[in-house]
Every structure is written in C-alpha cells, then in structure tokens.
C-alpha cells in the first residue's frame, strides 16, 4: 500500500496555545479514516493544520503528502496537489455565485452544473455562495465544490451535523463518490472524517478509527468497534489506553 498522508510527531499552536501534542498518523491510498474525540480535543485543529490555514503554527513535526514534505506549504499549493476540505462554517461570499465557485474549483464551467443537476441542487447555482443557506444546504454545497475540485485526499469535519435523515442519504452518496467507495480494487482516493455521532459510518465505510483526547491520539483501530466502545463507556475508557 502506498502511503498518501503521513503525520509525524506533529505539535501545533493556535493563538499561542498548544493544541496538538505529538500526533502520528498514516493514511494509505484508497483508505478512509475516522477521527473521534470530545469537543475541544483538537480534531478540527488537525484538519485545519493539514489544509494549511493561517494561525495554525507547526512547532515541531512533519506532514508528508504523496511523498512530499508539505509542512510549510501554502494553502492553495496543497489544494492544487490534491488536498480538499469541506468547511463546517464557511464564510458567505457576496456577489459570488455557487456557479462561479464550482467553475473555479473544477477549472471547467460545465462540470459544476452537471454535478449540481445530478444531486438536485441546480436551483442553488445562481445563489450567492452560502448566503442564507441552511445547515444541510451548506453541507451539500461544500461537497459539490469538493466533487468539482476532485481532490485525492478529502478532509471532512462532521459532515452529518445539521442534516436531516432524508438529506443524509444524499450527503452519504456524495461522500461515497468523493472517496470512490464503489471501486473496490485500485481505489485511489483517501479521506479523513471527523464524526461525533458516527451516523456517517452507516453510509460510508471507514478503514480505521483514531481517538483524540487533549491533542493526542489515544487509540487506533477498527472504527466501528471504537465507536461502539465510546457509546458504551464514553471517552474516559479511551483515556485509559494511551497508545
């Protein structure tokens, strides 16, 4: 198996506060991993750091993507190399239509329209990006943008939050498409998904789960087993078995 993303002893500060404390993780090509953990444990910080946002300062450690050290690489360069992220609370871009956004992400004006039509979202093409979108609409819009962008490695932060059951099916389909879940041999796409409720695991299979507590990974293993354990015993049980 080729390693797509490798995180080695990663320490990250946010606004002078140490949030990540020595994270190690390896995600192979074609693999989907899940990240569990309490609110404030550092999960979102890890995603933001991997994408390369300003304000997430790597103090120590290394991030390697497809064999290339990207620890200091600017955000857009990472996007161009194949990392994509769905935003949990994206900003509103006044005057920029979803149609423009999809065209920019795809580098092709038609692809966005095809995708939007396929997922029943064509009525939103001429809306300003995220302006007045509901929680579920934001999720769809984010996933559409990612499908247009077609990244090799997808970062998803609670893709199921704020989505009703009916729309969960569509969101699930979109994520499965992004992660090539219908290809069983020679799958190329990988992903890292933060989930609180675990609902998304009913729609998207994951290969491995990680539990993060206080900026550290405490457990790694079968995602469904880990999630069952968390549901039964809570995170305090995970705290007992520091890796």
């Amino acid at each position: 198996m080729d390693v797509m993303l490798k995180i080695e002893d990663l320490w990250v500060d946010v606004q002078g506060k140490e949030v990540l404390k020595g994270i190690n993780m390896e995600i192979g090509q074609g693999e989907t991993h899940c990240l569990f953990g309490r609110n404030g444990s550092g999960k979102t910080t890890l995603l933001m750091t991997l994408m390369g946002f300003d304000g997430y300062r790597v103090k120590h450690g290394r991030i390697t993507f497809k064999g290339e050290d990207i620890t200091e690489m600017p955000l857009h360069e990472r996007a161009r190399r194949g990392i994509g992220m769905a935003f949990q609370r994206p900003p509103t871009l006044r005057g920029v239509k979803l149609r423009n956004m999809l065209a920019l992400a795809a580098g092709d004006p038609d692809k966005g329209r095809e995708l939007a039509t396929f997922y029943g979202f064509e009525n939103f093409l001429d809306r300003e990006v995220n302006h007045g979108f509901s929680g579920g609409e934001i999720k769809k819009s984010e996933l559409l943008q990612l499908l247009a962008q077609n990244p090799d490695f997808t970062l998803l932060d609670e893709p199921e939050s704020g989505v009703d059951v009916e729309n969960l099916n569509i969101i699930g389909d979109m994520i499965r498409k992004l992660l090539q879940k219908d290809i069983h041999r020679g799958r190329k796409k990988s992903g890292l998904i933060i989930t609180h409720t675990g609902f998304i695991l009913n729609y998207v299979t994951a290969d491995k789960g990680h539990v993060m507590l206080n900026g550290q990974i405490y457990c790694q293993g079968n995602p469904l087993e880990i999630f069952e354990g968390i549901q039964k015993y809570g995170y305090q049980e995970c705290a007992k078995c520091r890796l």
Binding site: H76, G84, Q145
Partner: peptide, 21 residues
C-alpha cells in the same frame, strides 16, 4: 482562505471577492 482551499492563489482569491463585491 476559503477560495485558496479550492486552489486559487491569494491574488486570484482577492480579485474574485472584489468582483463579487
């Protein structure tokens, strides 16, 4: 940064936002 995460460099992102504005 939202636009940069879609692959636009800072200048392209800025001009997209200004055009929208």
């Amino acid at each position: 940064e939202y636009l940069m995460a879609r692959g636009l460099d800072e200048e392209e992102a800025t001009s997209t936002i200004v055009r929208g504005f």
